[in-house]
């Protein structure tokens, strides 16, 4: 009894979801990039005569409690979040996929060692691990980068290992080797086509995790230090003024939500 039908329309809707997500992300990044050209100035410059001003002519998106331009601060914060997400995810994917293929194709000691490493990083909830690292040197970039990359590579590794392991021993790969092809061909024609959609999905989730972690750390005041603007840090700074200036207060929340939403959509609306 074959099941027909739903498969195709599902693929179409996933594709559409991904496209909407990509569009949204592109728009946000473009906003982050273009911001400094719209208004010139320093996101840290205070103007105490115009604190918490509502969006208007002088300040397109208003000012915060210290009279700093929200547009400049938000766009700078987007650049910080996206940059950290990009490098941590790229690092994690590269390491995760390589080690995953190593574990799946070599087996034996290589697999045991890499799996132990992965289990070690899974023993603690990710944010706790990042917190521990950040606590060593608060406010600096390296522990943040290392910590986030360390929690992200594990998922890429486990996915790669799980997908490649059955492939590595499959008749298809055996036949390819018998026909004289080398390991690079096996990777290019057999492993990578199966991996790429999952690497993309996990990278989108990973980028979301990275952005959320950075914001969470900023929110509890142990992340990126002022004066560099960061979304979580902006939220906690603006919290006391939510009654006075709700429009200002909601801006970083909205940006963070849209960033994470776009990445969740790129991941096809799936559950990780």
């Amino acid at each position: 009894m074959k099941k027909q039908g739903t498969g195709n329309s599902k693929a179409v809707s996933v594709y559409r979801t991904r496209m909407i997500g990509s569009g949204l992300l592109f728009f946000l990044i473009a906003f982050g990039m273009v911001g400094p050209f719209l208004v010139s100035g320093d996101p840290g410059r205070q103007n105490l005569s115009a604190i918490l001003s509502t969006p208007g002519k002088e300040y397109l998106l208003g000012t915060d409690h210290l009279g700093r331009d929200m547009l400049l601060r938000l766009t700078a914060a987007i650049r910080v979040s996206v940059a950290i997400a990009l490098i941590t995810t790229a690092t994690a994917s590269l390491i995760g996929v390589s080690l995953g293929i190593l574990a799946a194709t070599r087996g034996g000691l290589a697999e045991r060692c890499t799996s132990l490493l992965a289990d070690t990083f899974l023993a603690l909830p990710g944010l706790l691990l990042v917190l521990l690292l950040v606590a060593i040197a608060p406010g600096s970039f390296w522990p943040l980068y290392l910590g986030i990359a360390m929690i992200l590579w594990v998922e890429q590794f486990r996915m790669t290992r799980a997908l490649v392991q059955p492939l590595a021993t499959s008749p298809a790969v055996q036949a390819t080797r018998l026909l004289g092809f080398g390991p690079w061909y096996v990777f290019r024609r057999h492993f990578w086509p199966e991996l790429q959609a999952n690497v993309l999905t996990l990278s989108a989730f990973g980028a979301a995790t990275a952005i959320l972690s950075v914001a969470a750390l900023g929110f509890i005041s142990v992340g990126i230090r002022p004066p560099t603007p960061e979304l979580g840090q902006m939220m906690i700074e603006l919290l006391p003024y939510y009654q006075e200036a709700p429009l200002i207060f909601l801006q970083p929340i909205l940006i963070l939500f849209l960033l994470v939403l776009s990445l969740n959509l790129i991941a096809g609306g799936k559950i990780r």
Partner: peptide, 16 residues
């Protein structure tokens, strides 16, 4: 020295 497999679809790269 070559081999033919039981399940033809399982013996080809799926995505090309």
């Amino acid at each position: 020295y070559q081999k033919l497999y039981q399940d033809p679809p399982a013996a080809f790269p799926r995505s090309i």
